[in-house]
């Protein structure tokens, strides 16, 4: 048991070291530029799955959290000159708070009402930011990157390694939730909320906890965006794409296990990056939508489910 727990952290350290090694080995910055986006999607999908996959509450508002993360970072940077890690920590705190408050407002609602409420929250927050001149309002805001810090030789490479670290934090959290009493409670909620409550599960508290963790991760994922693009505006920060992607990547990967969203984000993220480069950016979002529908209709357990089935078939074939 403890071997497995350590195994995860050893693996995580290896991944982090590998990421740093890559920044030394590869000169071309574009790989990191594209890779960072995929890392961001892994965090968003993993975060979405904590509430959407484990508890069955479909959040359409990923972009609200992402956008608030972006603008928290911008505010901290502009007002206090805060360094990137402080911006991200601030965004995570903001995200947890936002998750808690929106949870209080919306988590008493079920099914579609909750989902629509999260759309409402997105539009309201976007409207607030549009009318907030200090961070650029509707026209957007230019951000000047500070010089890169040691031991990195380029800002993008540093962002890439920070992205990997954030993925590790997100996956560790998701994995912990899944394997602990929290995850069991959330699954009970997803299966039958009334029965869960009558079995002693503090449903509202658990949902609030899930929503806060999820929100903190989403905001933290948004925070480095301003530095990454050196620019932010509300249209791209609150882009519906983030909501669709987080949801689609989770469902396509498989929602019952923490590895599902990671797998979904990698597969879809890589496909999208390839399509954006080779064909057009519209086509890649179209692919996302079509894949989402295909999987939701045809493979409810996602890629993980397909893999499991394939594995079982192989095992049976080998036995006979």
């Amino acid at each position: 048991m403890s071997m497995r727990r350590h195994g995860f952290w050893i693996g995580a350290l290896c991944v982090l070291a590998l990421a740093y090694g890559l920044t030394l080995a590869i000169r071309n910055e574009y790989a990191f530029f594209a890779g960072f986006i995929i890392l961001q999607f892994i965090v968003l999908a993993t975060a979405w799955n904590i509430l959407g996959g484990y508890a069955g509450y479909v959040n359409f508002g990923t972009s609200a959290f992402f956008g608030i993360g972006v603008y928290t970072a911008i505010f901290l940077f502009k007002a206090l000159g805060a360094p990137l890690l402080v911006q991200m920590a601030g965004a995570a705190v903001m995200g947890a708070l936002l998750g808690f408050v929106t949870g209080l407002l919306t988590l008493r609602l079920h099914g579609i009402f909750f989902s629509i409420a999260t759309v409402a929250m997105t539009i309201i927050l976007e409207t607030l930011v549009i009318n907030w001149k200090y961070v650029g309002g509707a026209t957007g805001i230019q951000v000047l990157r500070p010089p890169v810090t040691e031991p990195f030789d380029s800002y993008i490479k540093m962002l890439f390694v920070i992205g990997v670290a954030l993925v590790i934090v997100a996956v560790a959290l998701s994995r912990h939730v899944q394997g602990s009493w929290i995850g069991r409670g959330l699954r009970a909620i997803r299966d039958d909320e009334t029965a869960a409550e009558c079995t002693g599960v503090p449903t509202l508290r658990l949902k609030l906890l899930a929503c806060s963790i999820s929100g903190a991760l989403m905001c933290a994922a948004g925070a480095p965006s301003a530095m990454y693009l050196q620019f932010a505006d509300t249209t791209s920060a609150f882009n519906l794409n983030y909501s669709v992607s987080a949801l689609a990547m989770s469902l396509i990967g498989g929602t019952s296990h923490w590895a599902g969203p990671v797998l979904g984000a990698i597969v879809l993220g890589v496909t999208q990056q390839a399509l954006t480069v080779t064909i057009s950016s519209e086509l890649n979002v179209l692919v996302l939508g079509v894949m989402l529908i295909l999987f939701v209709v045809g493979a409810p357990e996602g890629l993980l489910g397909l893999l499991r089935k394939g594995w079982a078939r192989l095992a049976r074939g080998g036995g006979s």
Binding site: V58, S115, L240, L247, A248, L251, L286, G289, V290
Partner: peptide, 22 residues
């Protein structure tokens, strides 16, 4: 049906939007 039904219509929304853009 809850989660996947919602995701289904959300996906349709998205396809319609992108289709119109294209």
């Amino acid at each position: 049906a809850g989660v996947r039904g919602l995701a289904f219509f959300f996906g349709v929304t998205f396809i319609v939007e992108v289709g119109i853009i294209m």
